[in-house]
């Protein structure tokens, strides 16, 4: 699975095996083309159950449907929104096309789906809180 082979080896082999087992198989194997444009629609939509949790990603309208950030709004996921069990996970696209989320902010991964999976790993079953958190 190219999707898995490209993931940075941050998790153990066992966790990766669990990932493969938990993935529904509906997941498309191809992913975003890494560009520096940050344009909307640069990553593919996904919807799967990963480690028992539903993760979804899709192009979003962008344009500040939430008030997060010190600049008073704006969606910073490059026009892409990610959800864990229906709660939006704040994601961000880096200049090199890699992605991070507020749950693992210092550790870029290749795709929004990988960011969603990393968040599920990190959450260990805990619920995500809607952002902004305050």
């Amino acid at each position: 699975m190219p999707e898995l082979s490209r993931r940075r080896a941050l998790t153990t082999a066992a966790a990766l095996a669990a990932t493969a087992a938990a993935t529904t198989g509906a997941a498309s194997a191809h992913s975003s083309t890494a560009t520096a444009s940050g344009s909307a629609g640069s990553a593919d939509a996904f919807d799967e159950v990963y480690k028992g949790r539903r993760i979804q990603g899709r192009p979003s309208s962008g344009g500040g449907h939430h008030g997060g950030g010190h600049q008073g709004g704006g969606h910073h996921g490059g026009g892409f929104a990610v959800y864990v069990d229906g709660v939006e996970l704040h994601v961000m696209r880096n200049a090199d096309g890699s992605w991070i989320s507020v749950i693992s902010h210092y550790d870029p991964v290749p795709t929004p789906r990988a960011a969603a999976r990393a968040a599920v790993d990190e959450l260990q079953g805990a619920r995500l809180l809607p952002f902004p958190t305050n």
């Binding site: 950030g69 010190h70 600049q71 910073h76 902010h105 902004p132 958190t133």
Partner: peptide, 21 residues
């Protein structure tokens, strides 16, 4: 903590960026 998180989610490579990147 609140201030740091606000900048973390607000600082973007293609937009205004102050605390990070």
């Amino acid at each position: 903590v609140t201030t740091h998180n606000a900048f973390i989610v607000g600082d973007t490579d293609n937009g205004e960026r102050t605390g990070h990147r």
